[in-house]
Amino acid sequence: IEEVKKIVSEIQSKQLTRITINGNTYQVNSPEELVEYVRKVFS
């Protein structure tokens, strides 16, 4: 979970619009959307 928080804060600070998780690239339009992807991947 700490690793996830680190990734999320990194993305928020860079305002990235794409994230790659487990080889899948997602278009991310908002931090909320990012959190949803993270929940799916780590749930």
Rank of each mutant, 00 (worst) to 15 (best):
R18K: 12
I19E: 00
T17H: 05
V35N: 01
Q15C: 11
V41Q: 07
G23D: 08
F42H: 04
V28C: 15
S13Q: 12
S9L: 14
T20Y: 06
V38Q: 00
T17R: 05
L34A: 00
K5W: 14
I19G: 01
I11H: 01
E10S: 06
F42P: 01
I7P: 01
S30D: 06
V38D: 01
I19M: 06
K14T: 08
E3V: 12
T25V: 12
V8A: 05
N29E: 10
T17L: 08
K14I: 04
V8M: 09
S43N: 11
F42M: 11
L16M: 07
G23K: 02
Q27R: 06
E2G: 08
V4S: 04
E32Q: 08
P31T: 08
I21T: 01
V4H: 07
F42S: 03
K14W: 08
G23P: 10
Y26C: 10
K5H: 13
E36G: 03
V8S: 01
L16T: 02
E36Y: 05
Q12H: 11
I7H: 04
N22F: 11
I1K: 10
E33W: 08
V4G: 03
E3G: 07
V8D: 01
V38G: 01
L34K: 00
I21S: 00
T25K: 04
K5L: 14
S43E: 14
I21N: 00
K5Q: 14
S43P: 07
T20V: 10
S30A: 05
I19W: 04
T25H: 11
Q27F: 08
Q15H: 10
K6C: 12
I11G: 01
N29I: 05
Y26K: 05
S9N: 11
E33L: 12
K5F: 12
N22K: 07
N29R: 07
Q15S: 09
I11A: 02
Q12I: 15
E3T: 12
V41M: 14
E3N: 11
E3D: 11
N24Y: 13
F42R: 02
S43C: 13
N24G: 04
I21M: 03
K14Y: 05
T20M: 08
E3W: 15
K5A: 14
L16Q: 03
V28R: 15
E36A: 07
K14P: 03
T20I: 08
E3Y: 14
Q12W: 13
T17V: 08
K40R: 10
I21L: 09
E32K: 05
K40N: 10
S43A: 13
S30Y: 06
F42N: 02
V41C: 15
S9F: 14
K6N: 09
Y26V: 13
Q27Y: 08
Q15T: 03
R39K: 14
T17I: 11
S43F: 13
E36K: 05
Y26G: 01
G23L: 03
V4R: 04
Y37D: 01
S13C: 10
T17D: 08
L16S: 02
N29Y: 10
N24Q: 13
V35C: 12
E3R: 13
S43G: 14
N24H: 13
Q15I: 05
V38L: 11
T17K: 05
I11L: 03
T20N: 06
L34R: 00
I21Y: 03
R18N: 07
L34S: 00
N24W: 11
S9E: 13
V4A: 09
V28G: 15
L34N: 00
Y26D: 03
V4L: 15
E10W: 11
I1L: 12
E33V: 04
V41L: 15
V38R: 00
S30P: 10
L16G: 09
T20R: 05
K6W: 12
T20W: 04
S9T: 11
R18M: 11
Y37L: 15
V35D: 02
L34M: 02
L34C: 06
T25N: 06
V41I: 15
I7L: 12
K40S: 10
I19R: 00
Q12M: 15
Y37H: 10
I19Y: 07
L16V: 05
E36M: 05
Q27C: 14
S30W: 07
E2H: 08
K40E: 11
Q12K: 11
P31E: 01
N29F: 10
I21W: 03
V35A: 08
S30M: 04
S30K: 04
T17N: 04
T20K: 05
E36H: 12
E3K: 11
L34E: 00
L34F: 01
V35P: 02
V8L: 14
K40L: 13
G23N: 06
